[in-house]
């Protein structure tokens, strides 16, 4: 059943609108004064001033290299599999091609493409990657004039991604597992 809540009748002053008008004047003047003379501006002038991102910000995903300058990605295609919008497309090396250009890797992607128009910056690829080869970085200003331009290939992704030394992932996983072992679980 609908409950009717009666509105309070307006008092005489409220009916005159005058206090409301004065209130509006005060608020607007205060803000205009603050903007003009005290520099209290909430907006940011973008190309000159840039936003400082929080630590856990998820921007565009790029590939990274290890400290020796080699590609970390081993073409396991887990990220391609997990990617919700199917933005990642990996071409694994065929039989005849050279499998890897570094010693401690079995194979490497022949081509690695991310369609930045499809990417939703969910971070699943980073989460799933066993080699810590792909990272969501803090780049949020991706622009292009054609659709083809927005499909980033391996060279571009590597160039944008830069170097990330060491493979930390397994160490972190170990620490996580340890923490869970110590966690007091009562059955």
């Amino acid at each position: 059943m609908a409950i009717t809540v009666n509105r309070k009748p307006l008092t005489f002053w409220e009916k005159l609108y005058l206090p409301a008008i004065v209130g509006g004047l005060k608020v607007t003047l205060k803000h205009a004064y603050g903007t003009l003379f005290q520099g209290k501006v909430v907006t940011m002038e973008y190309p000159e001033q840039k936003w400082s991102m929080p630590e856990n910000y998820r921007g565009a995903p790029y590939l990274v290299k290890d400290q020796d300058g080699d590609t970390k990605c081993v073409s396991c295609q887990l990220c391609e599999f997990v990617c919700p919008p199917k933005a990642i497309r990996i071409t694994p090396p065929g039989d005849s091609a050279r499998l890897a250009d570094r010693a401690n890797a079995e194979k490497m992607p022949l081509e690695f493409e991310i369609n930045m128009l499809r990417c939703i910056y969910c971070g699943f690829c980073q989460e799933v990657c066993p080699e810590e080869a792909i990272f969501l970085q803090k780049d949020y200003s991706l622009t292009g004039t054609t659709r083809a331009e927005m499909i980033f290939n391996k060279e571009k992704l590597l160039a944008l991604g830069g170097v990330s030394p060491g493979i930390q992932k397994w160490k972190d996983k170990l620490a996580e597992a340890k923490a869970q072992e110590n966690f007091p679980v009562k059955l």
């Binding site: 607007t28 803000h31 205009a32 603050g34 903007t35 209290k40 501006v41 909430v42 907006t43 002038e45």
Partner: peptide, 13 residues
């Protein structure tokens, strides 16, 4: 401009 100032913005610049 005035709208911007009242809303703590800068306006066309």
């Amino acid at each position: 401009k005035i709208s911007a100032w009242i809303q703590d913005r800068v306006g066309p610049n």
